[in-house]
Computed example of a mutant assay.
Amino acid sequence: MAKPISSFAQALRQRRVLRHWNRVADMAPSQPLSALRSQRGQARQLRRQLDRLIHEAESRLALPLIGSNAIRRPLGADWAYRPVLWRGPLDVPGAASVESRTAIGDEVTVFHDCDVSELTVRQIRNTRESDLAPFGLRMDVFRFDGSFLSLVLELPEDVVQGLTRRHLLRMDAVVEMEKPLEIFARLNVRHGPNTEQIVRELPLHDDDVFVEFDLAYTKMNEKRVEKVWIDLIFEGPEMNEIVLRDLTFSRRPRAEL
């Protein structure tokens, strides 16, 4: 019962403070200059604290909600997913001189073949009005003496439930970069001892950046599907800053012909 009483007392104090300042404002035209000078100083002190509160509240309330899983699902989609890295804060938000096979959270792993790593990765907070994902991933690449740089994204087990060759798997991305580069997405579907692969280049110059993988063009054994993952491959990443603001996946059955 203590909490409701405290809330009531706080509301009562707030009403009294508002009545006080309403009364002071109403009397300001007739107040002596000495009293008005003192009241102006008090009002300015109060306004500084109120402005701090309003600034912080508007900033935080404008951000995408942590844990949000709002996804633009294609029509007919029977599954959709945003990896954890883009949904919530990581225990270790970043690393410098990243070695190959470094895990970023539980679902994302960095791979490269550099002799000397000059790569940093960091989870960042999205702040734009258009952002649906609460977080993004920034990669800063300086000197790059390797032949490849990739992110491997493990998709959850439920993506394989009911997965058939009639499905289209889609990846949507929001990507920013300092200078142009090519990014390829490679779908991997393990079924028994075999792995099917489909490669698509991301259309980074389009307004909507997405790729689709049509499983009808694979030899996937629907009864033996075990695991699905995506390789994001960055071509020519040297001296570039790459920000993946959002990354979502969905699947839908393709229309019958």
Rank of each mutant, 00 (worst) to 15 (best):
S147R: 15
S150V: 00
A173W: 06
L149K: 03
V116N: 04
L168R: 08
F184C: 10
D131A: 12
I124F: 02
P134H: 07
D140A: 15
D115W: 05
L137W: 04
S150G: 02
R125L: 08
M139Q: 11
F144G: 01
A173M: 14
D140V: 10
D172G: 05
F148W: 14
D140R: 15
F184A: 09
V152C: 15
D140C: 13
S150D: 01
E118S: 09
L149Q: 05
G146K: 01
R165N: 15
R128I: 11
E182H: 14
Q123R: 02
L149A: 08
A133L: 06
L155R: 00
M177W: 03
H167N: 13
L168A: 09
P180R: 05
P180N: 08
A133T: 07
N126K: 07
E178F: 01
S147K: 11
E178N: 06
I183V: 14
P180Y: 01
L153Y: 10
I183G: 00
T120M: 03
R122N: 13
V152T: 14
E157I: 07
L155T: 06
L168W: 08
P134I: 09
L132A: 04
R165S: 06
R125E: 12
V160I: 15
D172Y: 02
C114M: 11
D172V: 00
H167G: 03
E118V: 06
C114K: 03
